[in-house]
Design a protein around this nucleic acid. Structure first.
Length: 591
RNA sequence: GGGGACGUGGUGUAGCUGGUUAACACGCCGGCCUGUCACGCCGGAGAUCGCGAGUUCGACUCUCGUCGUCCCCGCCA
């Protein structure tokens, strides 16, 4: 090996190299032994090339090639030859050539892998994760990792061009209230005290603005100790950005430019459009703050029509301050009672106590609730929902939260099942004007919708005292195909306003001092107006790659139970390690 | 914390109204083959059916529990 140097990559051999001696190194994808001649496909990161072993070239090499098996790592010296016309493989990028091996070195033997290194995977994700290094050999996974790399490169280049500075912030930092549960790291030097892993670099990036960095970014890991989902991992990567002396529109413009570069880097040639919609409108029309705007089927408010109805479920709900809303499932009047029961079970997950329905047919309506509704009410509903014969109208009556969640998710489910969602489209939406605060029933206090450093809209600041939940904020989320990929805000840079917000959040002066004293202290020394945004890199790459889970764009992800099947983390530690940290375990029922 | 789906040779599946040798494909091993590229042909090995308990004369099959993976609610931007 010492005296061999790779001259080319397998996937990049061309006809122009005909006659040249080359040295290749890689993995044996496949061996086809024809007795008198052996063909192998040699694979590296850049593709495959056929290597031919023939006794006419070198008898010893030919015999050694008999030992080759799948995934053996080999080095080959040989001559590039153009294939005869009839033997060209159109399927292969290097299908016009083959390499006649004169010398072969087996660099590493390989056991038969637990699953084949094929593009089409036919095994469980469990096994893939356990042998992730093998899974990552597969083309689709290599493509995902490359895509992720390309996106990061595009981001860095764009931000660098716009004079941003990449700055690293601590991973061992301070636990803060609000937001997600922290991952804690015990301090050995300071026994009994803990660091927290960052949920985001939020406070540090604001401090960097006070430092006069003007424009900061970082592509960095963030940690949240909450339950996992297809698009949520305990550690994930943010593209974190902060800018000084920029208003909201300035920031959105800057980010749109970045997204355009990212799409170019992902080879997606689509003209991108970035419409904006207020939070209020999104909730009203789609029942969610991250609407998938690739299809219609919007939520229609029928509360006024049925407010005085004899149908108590509807009128009573409205009288109690609730809503009655519906969606029009076009052409679904042929749904069976069983189909609708399934939808009813589905909305029950979101708290809906029932799902009323009306089938619109050529001969009128068919419905379990028709007998309770006046004809003019039914007509008004049909009119408002633009219903035609063949449509199925579905209704939920409840408090606004339940109505939004149940119909919003029902809309998504039906959109998917009815194939209403254009797969290869990229629909962006800025959702703006979020409420600054919402009332938390359990904790009996206001909590920040975004985070406590979010700037209220200037014209709403005076409402902070009399009607805090009416205050809108200068916060914005970027939604792509119904998935939130980024969110940010203009921050508060005024010490008094920040204190006021902490007060509204029911944080005592002592707590504020202990948790955020350093930030308020910093603001005393001249803080510029600033704002920023953070993107979920994993989600962004997942969408660009048309994938269903961020696990597919993370080299070594965790399972839904937050374990790593490859390393078996997390694991127990020995008593000595605990002792050094002055920690003791409660008696757990371990067997 | 809750709801749901799945678990059978190395891999993917079939079998399951309870019954004697658990089937098929791919892979693997051996043999033959000088133009294949999902090579082909012949032969072979390989599973106590995730684990535990129960019901039964008898359990891959039924029941309960448990473990693991995935999806969802809660939680979390």
């Amino acid at each position: 090996m010492e005296d061999w140097s790779r001259s080319d990559y397998c996937g990049e051999i061309t006809k122009e190299q005909e006659g040249t001696e080359i040295t290749l190194m890689g993995w044996v994808q496949r061996r086809r032994d024809h007795g008198g001649v052996i063909f192998t496909d040699l694979r590296d990161r850049f593709g495959l090339v056929q290597v031919v072993f023939s006794p006419e070239v070198n008898e010893d090499t030919f015999e050694l090639a008999d030992e080759l098996r799948k995934e053996y790592v080999i080095a080959v010296k040989g001559k590039v030859k153009a294939r005869p016309e009839a033997m060209i493989n159109e399927e292969l990028a290097t299908g016009e050539v083959e390499v006649y091996a004169s010398e072969l070195k087996i660099l590493a033997e390989a056991e038969t892998p637990p699953f084949m290194i094929d593009d089409e995977i036919k095994t469980s994700e469990e096994l893939r994760l356990k042998h992730r290094y093998l899974d990552l050999r597969r083309n689709p996974m290599q493509d995902n990792i490359k895509l992720r790399h390309n996106v990061k490169q595009a981001v860095r280049e764009y931000l660098d061009d716009n004079r941003f500075l990449e700055v690293e912030t601590p991973m061992l930092t301070k636990s803060t209230p609000e937001g997600a549960r922290d991952f804690l790291v015990p301090s050995r030097v300071n026994k009994g005290k803990f660091y927290a892993l960052p949920q985001s670099p939020q406070l540090f990036k604001q401090l960097l603005m006070v430092s006069g960095m003007d424009r900061y970014f970082q592509i960095t890991r963030c940690f949240r100790d909450e339950d996992l989902r297809a698009d949520r991992q305990p550690e994930f990567t943010q593209i974190d950005i902060e800018m000084s002396f920029m208003n909201q529109e300035d920031i959105l413009d800057m980010i749109e430019g970045m997204i355009e570069e990212v799409f170019a880097a992902a080879d997606i040639e689509e003209k991108l459009d970035f419409p904006q919609m207020s939070y209020e409108e999104a909730m009203k029309r789609y029942g969610t703050d991250r609407p998938d705007t690739r299809f219609d089927m919007e939520l229609i408010d029928l509360s006024e029509i049925v407010a005085d109805s004899d149908f108590n479920v509807f009128s009573g709900t409205v009288a109690d301050g609730g809503q009655v809303k519906g969606i029009n499932a076009k052409g679904c009047a042929d749904f069976s009672r069983g189909d609708i029961d399934k939808l009813t079970d589905f909305v029950a997950d979101y708290g809906a106590k029932g799902l009323a329905w009306i089938k619109v047919t050529e001969d009128g309506v068919e419905s379990q609730i028709a007998k309770f509704l006046a004809d003019e009410e039914i007509d008004a509903i049909i009119d408002k929902m633009s219903a035609e014969a063949g449509d199925l109208l579905l209704f939920v009556a409840d408090n606004p939260k339940v109505v939004a969640a149940s119909l919003g998710n029902l809309r998504l489910k039906l959109g998917e099942e009815l194939d209403l969602i254009p797969e290869d489209e990229f629909d962006f939406l800025w959702v703006t004007d979020f409420p600054l605060l919402e009332w938390d029933e359990d904790e009996e206090r206001y909590i920040s919708l975004h985070h406590p450093f979010t700037m209220p809209k200037e014209e709403d600041i005076e409402l902070l005292d009399e009607d805090p939940t009416a205050v809108k904020s200068q916060a914005y989320d970027l939604v792509l195909n119904g998935i939130e990929i980024g969110g940010g805000s203009i921050r508060i840079h005024d010490i008094d306003l920040q204190k006021k917000i902490f007060e509204l959040l029911d944080m005592g002066a002592d707590e504020v001092e202990e948790k955020f004293g350093f930030l308020l202290e910093a603001f005393k020394y001249g803080a510029p107006p600033h704002g920023g945004i953070a993107f979920g890199l994993d989600r962004l790459v997942m969408l660009l790659g048309n994938l269903n889970t961020i696990r597919d764009v993370i080299a070594f992800p965790k399972t839904q139970r937050a374990t790593c099947l490859l390393t078996d983390a997390p694991s127990e530690v020995d008593e000595g390690q605990l002792g050094e940290l002055a920690l003791e375990l409660e008696d757990l029922e371990l067997d």
